[in-house]
Amino acid sequence: MQPIYDYLSSVKDKRILVSGGTTGIGRAIALMLHDMGAKVLIVGRNQPQIDETLEEMDRSSSEAACYGVQADLSGKEGIQTTLQAVDEQLGGLDILVNNAALGYGSVMEGTYEDWQYLLNTNLLAYLALSNGAITRMKDGGHIVNIGSMSADVREANSSVYVATKSGIQGFSEALRKEVNPKGIKVSLIEPGAVDTDMQEQPDEEKKEQIKNEEMLEANDIAMAVVFCLCQPHRADIVNVKVRPHLQII
């Protein structure tokens, strides 16, 4: 039997891009993978958050390189800027974590431009970065898409957000069938409620929900990503649903 530490070492020295890697789930994923020795490039819209996350990486015991790029993934220019940074900073790509996303409510709210921005960020950026990643994964690779329980629950007053997460669910399944023959894995992780900026409750209320096992911490999802990445090549973790113990949905 292959020992567990060999599985964990599979992340070391991997070149990883994490979109939305400066806050919430993405930040937790980036920090955890960097701690494990991966070379991590994070993408975010705000330079101060990029700088703070990179400083946190620098304070860790890991000697792996870490980089950041400021880009708005809702547009073609932001995608191109990100992929150029992949080439210049990482020199290729082994793992893509598609995570950048924005919350939204009902289609009865906002304007066409609001919906377009959300769809571009939450869905089209996943497609575009996946395309860019696949062309750079010469010896196999792994794409991890962060979805949401909303794709299954489809709660009222969240129709625009639900549309994007349902799209990611379908995209992940079809993409896996396309790229598995190339040696590339695709994993979809669908969290329930997580303590991130997307949850609008006061911090004290979220802490109470975590204590009551009604909400997850971002590190819980980062652990699920590590689980997917550290399997032997023969084993694909296709879909992981991570729910708070007492979020009954």
Rank of each mutant, 00 (worst) to 15 (best):
V225D: 02
V86H: 00
L119W: 09
V194S: 02
K14L: 06
E113M: 06
A64E: 07
G26L: 13
L33F: 08
L17K: 12
V226W: 09
N99A: 04
V238S: 10
G140R: 10
H233V: 15
A100H: 12
I29Y: 07
S19R: 00
K14S: 08
K165P: 01
N145C: 01
L93V: 01
K206Y: 02
N120A: 15
T53N: 09
G78V: 08
M198Y: 03
D195S: 02
Q80E: 14
T196V: 07
L31T: 06
A30D: 09
D114M: 06
A174K: 06
R27H: 11
A71Q: 12
A133L: 08
G192W: 00
I42G: 02
N145K: 09
M36I: 06
G68C: 02
S61I: 00
K76A: 15
E63A: 13
L96T: 01
D195E: 05
V18L: 09
A38Y: 13
I50K: 08
P3I: 12
T53P: 04
A71L: 08
M137N: 07
M32N: 15
M137R: 00
L17E: 15
E208C: 10
L123G: 00
L96M: 15
P232S: 13
G105V: 05
N239F: 10
D35P: 05
M32Q: 13
L41D: 07
F227Q: 14
V97Q: 01
A64Q: 07
S158P: 01
N212V: 05
I143M: 09
N219W: 12
N180Y: 15
A28L: 13
I184H: 11
E208D: 09
I168K: 03
M198Q: 02
S62W: 15
G192H: 04
N219H: 10
E190T: 03
G21K: 06
P3M: 11
N180S: 15
V194Q: 08
P244Y: 02
I189C: 04
T135R: 07
S74G: 08
G24T: 11
G147W: 07
N99V: 13
G92P: 09
A30N: 10
A133W: 03
K182I: 06
I50R: 13
L83S: 02
I168A: 05
V240F: 11
D13L: 14
A64C: 05
I79F: 10
S172N: 15
L229C: 14
